[in-house]
Amino acid sequence: MTTHRPQRTCVGCRLVTDQEVLLRWIEDPQDPSRILPDPKRRGTGRGAWLHPDPECARLAVRRGGFARAYRSSRIRVELDELLAALNKALPNASCPPEHLQT
């Protein structure tokens, strides 16, 4: 018998994978135009999921992945801020090998 592993879609590369390899992001409760990392996955509201990979971050910003995930045009994500928050939230994170092959 196999155990169920929740799947999520990365807002950058759009690859569907186990949620445990993705970082969840939520809207900032004080400023809904900003996003915050939610490494413990306990934040309220809709979440967006991103591989801990700078290339996925670039794709998410370029393609408007966070605005699409939150269904909101008010989300404004700057790549530099996203990369800094990503490094702060998961300083030693790396992507699984199957992600790097896509």
Rank of each mutant, 00 (worst) to 15 (best):
R71K: 15
A85K: 14
K88M: 01
S33Q: 08
T9S: 10
W25P: 00
R71G: 15
L100A: 15
D53E: 13
A85S: 15
G65R: 01
Q101E: 15
V61D: 02
N92H: 14
C95E: 15
W49I: 07
R76A: 03
R63N: 14
T102I: 11
A85R: 11
L90G: 11
T9H: 10
W25K: 05
T17C: 08
P32K: 13
G65F: 00
G65D: 02
P54W: 05
N87W: 00
R58L: 06
E78L: 10
E20P: 08
A89H: 05
M1D: 11
E98K: 12
L59N: 01
P52W: 04
G43S: 13
N92Q: 14
L100R: 15
C13M: 01
S33T: 15
V16F: 02
R76M: 03
L86H: 11
D53R: 06
R62N: 06
A93V: 05
L59V: 05
G45V: 14
P91R: 08
G64M: 01
L59R: 13
D18H: 06
R46T: 14
P32S: 11
A85P: 06
D80H: 05
L82V: 10
L82S: 04
E20D: 15
E55N: 09
L90E: 13
E27L: 07
P6G: 09
P91S: 07
R76H: 08
C10T: 02
A67E: 02
H4P: 12
E81K: 05
T17V: 12
T102Q: 15
A85M: 15
Q7C: 05
P97L: 05
A57T: 09
A57L: 01
A89I: 02
N87F: 00
L79P: 07
E27D: 06
V16K: 04
A60H: 01
G64R: 04
A84N: 02
D53I: 02
S94Y: 12
V21P: 14
T17H: 07
G47Q: 10
C13Q: 03
S94G: 14
K88S: 06
E98Q: 12
C10Y: 05
K88V: 04
H4C: 07
L86K: 12
L82T: 08
S94V: 12
G65M: 02
G64D: 06
C10K: 02
E55H: 08
P32N: 09
E98T: 12
E55I: 04
H51D: 10
